[in-house]
Amino acid sequence: MSKVTKEQVLRSSGVNVLKCMRCGKCSATCPSYDEMEYHPHQFVYMVEKGDLEPLLNSDSIYKCLSCYACVERCPRGVEPAKVVEGIRNAVLRQSGMNHIKAENIPDMLDEDLPQQAIVSAFRKYKR
């Protein structure tokens, strides 16, 4: 993987991580908390510190549901989900880093699954 910089993540997400006052309300509200190795407040803090490697290599980036609960409830308007998305996109944009592959899709389908789920999963997991 080529080098991903803090500036790149900040620019892509449009988030000012310095607004965070470390209250942890994002992680308090996150529905995927238990599935994540790194939690929303850690994404914000680690990006602030420039400690990106662990995040780039963690499965946590695929656990965010993009449900906007942290965005809605953050008292400082930090928008942690955008940081998670920024990191995930930085990974997906590297060659060979697609998280799902088209050929695996048929195995995931059932007759009721709305294609909205497939489109969204492609958007979130694949370049």
Binding site: R22, C23, G24, K25, C26, S27, A28, T29, C30, H41, A69, R73, P75
Partner: peptide, 21 residues
Amino acid sequence: GMVGKVAPRADGTLDVQASDL
């Protein structure tokens, strides 16, 4: 840490979902 959500349950208790940082 902060509380993220308080969910009133049918049994009268309140489920407090919060961070322990």
